[in-house]
Amino acid sequence: MKLNFKKSGTGEPLIILHGLFGSADNWFSIAKELENDFTLYLVDQRNHGDSPHSDEWNYEVMVEDLRELMDEEGLSEAYLMGHSMGGKTAMNFAVTYPDRVEKLIVADIAPRYYPVHHQTILEGLNSINLSETYSRKDADDQLAKYIPYPGIRQFLLKSLGRDRNGFYWKINLPVITENIEEVGKALEEDTVYSGPTLFLAGANSNYIQQSDLPDILAHFPNYEIEFIEGAGHWLHAEKPEAVVREIRRFLI
């Protein structure tokens, strides 16, 4: 699948993958801080952002999407970073094509299995009647019945597009809803990427725990981990300066 991406900057290539319900735009402010150091590729994964929709949605096909992008861009290898779902894609890519990943950064996700925990978000998104939505405020009011936090609603509603026919979802909401179990799948056993790997964890997040470290070591024996103080799961939005600092420290 030919993915949509935004390319900017100069230097060694750094590919960044967003998380579930997100898009390349989520990393725009981080990329702006890194453009003097790297050639940035901010990628919309399939069924997200401006990339195509498909009924097939799992890490195997998302890995191949990324390989195709690198092939078309003439990238034999690159620095690779992913957040949450994007981190799982990045980890799967690294263990599948280790020679194509110079260094790996995984933001607030571990290799283990995660049970489905997005039911309320999916119920809220599916509850929005787009045919009766005439403004973003209409959509926000409907979503507020399920999600009381304005920041989370604002993030989710970035996936709401609008054209002359009205509002539409940029994300492939039906396929994501039907296949949500795919997001939490663990890496296959005995898969290893031996290259330098940095795990960035939000200190206030429960996505990476001390109990995950043996599993991380088994898959990524050359890893280090940094906990970003004051950050939760969306560490790049909550503590962007710290995230940029760690990216530079690790890659340069």
Rank of each mutant, 00 (worst) to 15 (best):
A94D: 03
P111M: 10
E102Y: 04
S131C: 03
H118Q: 14
A78E: 06
E102V: 06
H83K: 08
V116H: 03
V106P: 06
G86V: 10
K88E: 03
S131T: 14
P115W: 00
W57R: 02
N92G: 14
M91V: 06
L104H: 04
V106S: 05
D99M: 05
N58Q: 05
L66W: 04
A110I: 11
G87W: 03
E60T: 14
P111H: 07
M62S: 11
M70S: 05
H53D: 06
I105L: 14
A78S: 15
E102R: 15
G86A: 10
D108M: 10
T89V: 15
R67T: 09
S54E: 04
M91D: 01
D71G: 01
E68A: 15
D108Y: 04
G87A: 10
E73G: 11
T89L: 04
Y114R: 09
A94R: 01
E56P: 00
K88T: 09
E68L: 15
K103G: 11
L125W: 00
G87S: 10
L122M: 15
A110H: 08
S127T: 11
M70I: 06
H83T: 10
P52Y: 02
R112P: 01
N126T: 12
K103T: 11
K103P: 11
Y59Q: 08
V101S: 03
N129Y: 00
N58G: 13
R112L: 08
L104N: 08
A90Y: 00
A90M: 04
S84G: 12
H83E: 09
N126W: 00
N129K: 14
I128L: 09
L122K: 02
Y97T: 10
I128E: 07
E60V: 13
P111D: 07
V106D: 02
A90Q: 01
S127M: 06
D71A: 07
P52I: 12
N126P: 00
S54I: 07
